[in-house]
Structures are given as C-alpha cells and as structure tokens.
Design a protein around this nucleic acid. Structure first.
Lengths: 207, 207
DNA sequence: GTCTATAGAAGGATAGAC
DNA sequence: GTCTATCCTTCTATAGAC
C-alpha cells in the first residue's frame, strides 16, 4: 500500500521532471506527464493538487542539484588551481549527463525570478568568501583576487561552464559546417576552460 | 490607407515582440498582444494568420539583430586586441539596452532548435575564419590561435558576454547580499571581459 | 481594415464510482 | 489509490457585419 504509493508518486515526479525539462512550465501538459508515467491524469492532482505545486517540486529539486555542484569548491583540500580544474571537470560532466538542465533553469528563472531568489537567500555568500579566503590567502593575493573581483570571476567561470549547454542549438548549428561534434567540443572544454581561466588570473599578477 | 495598414501592422509586430520576449512563445497570449497594441484580437490573424507565423516573424528579427552584433568583429580595421575590446563593449551595451533578448533567444532555440539552424545555415562560417586569418595572420600565430581552437575561444567570448543577462535572476539574488548592483556589475564587465580574454590568450603564447 | 460574436478545441481541475 | 466522466475556463481561429 504505502509501497505502491511511493512508487506512483515517484513515477509521477520523474515523469514530470522529464516533461518539464523538455517543454518548460508553460509548454508542458498534465496529460503528457500522466501518459509518460502510464497513469491517469487525476492521479497527478491527487498527489500534487495543482500543476504549479508539481512544477515547484521539480524546480526546487533541479535547482538544488545544480547548486550543489558548486559546493565542493569550498570544501575540497586542493590548491586554487586544482579547484578550478576540479570545478570545470565536475560541473561540465554533470551537465553532460543532464544536458537539459541549464536551459530549463535559466528559462524558468527568467520567467519567475522570485522563485530562485527564495532559494538563494538560504545561501550565506559572505561565509563562502571567508572560507575561500581562509583556505587560499596567499594564492588570492598572488593572483590579485579580492572580494571585489570575485563576482566577475565567479560569474565568468559559471558562464564558460554553463553557456555551451544553454546555447547548444546555436553551437550545433555552427559546428555542423565545421565538422565538429558537440560532444567532442564539450569533452575538450573540461580542460580548455580550466586552462583559460588559470592563464587569465596568472597573467593578472604581472600587470 | 496603406499608411494606416503599416501603422497597425507595425504596432502589432512591436507589441508581439514585447509580449513574446516577456512570456515566451508558450506563455504569450494573442489577447495580451492585442491589448498591448490597443487593437482587436482578430486583427492579429488578419495580418499574421496564426500565432506561429507572428512568432516566427518576431523570432527571426531578434535572432538577426543579435547575430548582426558579431559582424563588425570581422570588418573593423582594428588589431585583434582592439577587436576583442570592441566586441565586448558593443555586445554588452546592446544587451544592456535589450536585456530580455538573451534569455528569450536561448529558451526558444532550445524549445525548437530547427528554427535557429535554418538561420545559421545562411552564414558562411568558413569565410569568416578566412577573413580573420587574412587580417590577423601574425597575431593569431603569436597568440597560438588556430582554426581548431577558434570554437572554444569564440564560444567562451559569447558565454562571458551573454551569460550574465541569461542568468540575471540568479546573479541578482546573489548580489543582493553583497550590496552589488546588477547594472554596475554589467558596466564593469565591458572592460573586465576584454581584459580577461586578452590575458588568457596572451599567456598562451608563453606556454 | 476593423469590429463583434462565436465556433471549436484543449487544458486544468474535480466529483464520484470502485 | 485509481479510474471514468465531466465541468469550466481559456485560447486560437474564423465568420460575418460594418
């Protein structure tokens, strides 16, 4: 009984996740989700009451997964350069396995910014900076990285990592004529991205 | 008569552009567009037959505008470094004036990749590379930029430029607690981005 | 060209039987 | 917990008057 409940609820959640990622909140149909889960439409409402409830559950799960991937950067006992390499390798590999997430998140966030801000408020940004500073005091000084330059640097790293997946359609269109395979490009990017950022910050110290 | 036609058709197109950017194809309602244009819903169908036609017209215009901003990079008689500075300054300034475009485009492209691929096929990517090579042969060699590394480099530049606008909701959420203003961050980024890329490619030559 | 009225279909949500 | 049947609203699209 409770076992079967769990199965159905999970099946609904998984189906909803797939459909919402593919079609977005506005484009997704409750019928699609029910069909995908192989159950009746009414059951969706039985478990999640409204489409909005169901969507929110899915959205929070996905946003959480995405942000969790940033956490190790503040934990791992690695040098700053190693952390940059670690970040790109892990984050890009994660998106490789979930290529629909970036575009889904960016779109839904834009459609309803309040939703993500609620989640972000739970993060203690200041504490993260203090952690980073404590762990890498010398390196940060060496590379001329300060609390003031962190936003530009971090958003640049996120951009380099996330953008190819968000703009996949454009890139594939361009790569078509150059005989470049998107997957090869992504594989290459794990190393390229880290090298690029490290070269940029290294050079900063000599300026 | 023909004057009034033009006025109405233009008013519809402009209203559709605004509404589609804000709500997306799936979220936009023909009624919203009609209200926004101060006309009757039937007129939308009179001029554009279906919602799909209207959307396509808007989409192609916006995609065209966005890509046009890349063109000067291949025309202007500037050094490679100056071109990089020029690109970021111009592209970011354009998005500053049209902050909704990046998210709109990325989303709709993802929702229907075929739409953008049709437009991209009209671009002669190979010719662009030859132009660049002819104009900057020495600099490309000096910076170790080849036809093979161009995709990673160009997509990185696009990423750095576009991502902040596509992820605006997230960034604003984070910046909230750091007392950073999004507009200040963007203004700063015009220079930061160019410096960052130039430092990265400069350092490459010494490796 | 522009409007009113309405067709026709689709979608979210609920009632009620089992 | 799960299904069928159905309500009610919303939305695109068209017919037809002016």
């Amino acid at each position: 009984m409770t076992e079967k409940d769990k199965q159905t609820e999970e099946k609904i959640f998984e189906s909803a996740t797939e459909v919402f990622i593919e079609k977005g909140m506005d484009g997704a149909r409750m019928q699609d989700i029910a069909d995908h889960a192989g159950i009746n439409k009414s059951l969706l409402h039985y478990y999640y009451r409204t489409k909005d409830h169901l969507f929110n559950a899915v959205f929070e799960m996905i946003a959480g997964q995405m942000f969790k991937k940033f956490a190790p950067v503040f934990d791992e006992k690695l040098s700053l350069e190693e952390k940059i390499k670690f970040f790109f390798r892990e984050h890009i590999t994660f998106m490789q396995k979930n290529p629909g997430l970036p575009a889904f998140l960016l779109n839904e966030i834009n459609r309803n910014p309040a939703r993500i801000k609620k989640l972000i408020r739970q993060i203690d940004v200041n504490k993260l900076w203090l952690t980073l500073e404590a762990q890498h005091k010398d390196e940060l000084k060496k590379y001329n990285i300060t609390k003031q330059t962190i936003p530009q640097l971090m958003s640049t790293m996120a951009a380099i990592s996330v953008f190819p997946f968000a703009a996949r359609g454009i890139l594939e269109g361009i790569f078509e004529k150059m005989d470049i395979n998107f997957n090869d490009y992504i594989e290459e990017r794990k190393v390229f991205a880290a090298d690029f950022v490290i070269k940029a910050i290294k050079n900063d110290s000599s300026s």
